[in-house]
Every structure is written in structure tokens, then in C-alpha cells.
């Protein structure tokens, strides 16, 4: 299973993401078909179901973007009353989901998450 192969490669990068950015409270890596690879959090969220939900949302984002011929879908952002969730592709098999409970932390969330996703893409290579 891809998720098991990925887990040791991305876990240190998830730990670093949460360490480097105070505003990020949880982050996870999932496969595009909804399997959890790894997660880290500073709170006590139940994140298991977010793996499949994140893959559905990312796929819908890809489908809508393709419909409008806007190239690749980079991010999907969910801005909510009590925080922000960002979904972004690491590569064509993996998705990074990052969460903040700070409503004004979108910039930090996106910039740190994007760097993390790029590092993960390099780390996992062609797996």
C-alpha cells in the first residue's frame, strides 16, 4: 500500500511544518483515493475521516478546474467561522491538508504548507 510506504518519508516533514509555523494546528498527508498516510496535530481533532473527505474535495477541485480550463488546481481553501483548512496537491498521488484555528492566518498557512508540499514531493520522488 502506498500509504504505508509514504508514512516514514513525510512524518518528519509534517513535524517540522507544525514546529516552524505556530499558526498551523494540524496537518495530514493522504492519498488521492482517501487513505491516511501520516498526521500531526497540536490539538485533539479526529482526523481519520478527513483523509477520504480531503481526497473527495481535492478531486472535485481538479474536476472544476479542468471544466474551466484553468490548468492544475493548486489549492482549495475552506475559510470557516473558527479557522481555515487548506488542501493542496503534493504530487498526482498525494494531498497535504493543513488546519489553523486562527482566522487571520491564511497567508502563513498557505506559504508554510506550500513549502512543505514541495519538500515532500522531493522526498517521496516517484513512489
Amino acid at each position: 500500500m502506498l500509504a504505508k510506504l509514504i508514512q516514514p518519508k513525510v512524518t518528519p516533514l509534517l513535524e517540522r511544518l507544525l514546529r516552524d509555523c505556530d499558526d498551523i494546528h494540524a496537518a495530514l498527508v493522504v492519498t488521492v483515493d482517501g487513505n491516511m498516510c501520516a498526521m500531526q496535530q497540536k490539538k485533539n481533532y479526529t482526523l481519520e475521516r478527513l483523509a477520504s473527505m480531503g481526497s473527495s474535495l481535492m478531486s472535485l477541485g481538479d474536476t472544476i478546474t479542468a471544466e474551466l480550463k484553468m490548468g492544475a488546481c493548486n489549492n482549495i481553501i475552506s475559510e470557516n467561522e473558527q479557522g481555515i483548512i487548506a488542501f493542496m496537491h503534493i504530487n498526482d498521488k498525494l494531498v497535504l491538508i493543513s488546519i489553523t484555528t486562527h482566522k487571520n492566518a491564511l497567508g502563513m498557512l498557505l506559504s508554510h504548507s506550500r513549502i512543505c508540499a514541495q519538500n515532500m514531493a522531493q522526498e517521496v520522488g516517484d513512489l
Binding site: L2, D33, N35, T63, K93
Partner: peptide, 22 residues
């Protein structure tokens, strides 16, 4: 309109792609 993605788990033995939204 479909949301088929590559199957990455044991289901890949049965199907290369799977629907994740609709």
C-alpha cells in the same frame, strides 16, 4: 463529469481508478 483517481491500496488489484466524490 467524474472524480476518478488512481487507486493506491489493495483495491488496485481490482481497479486502476476509483471514484472519490461523484
Amino acid at each position: 463529469i467524474n472524480t476518478d483517481v488512481a487507486t493506491t491500496d489493495k483495491a488496485a488489484q481490482r481497479k486502476e481508478m476509483t471514484t472519490v466524490a461523484l
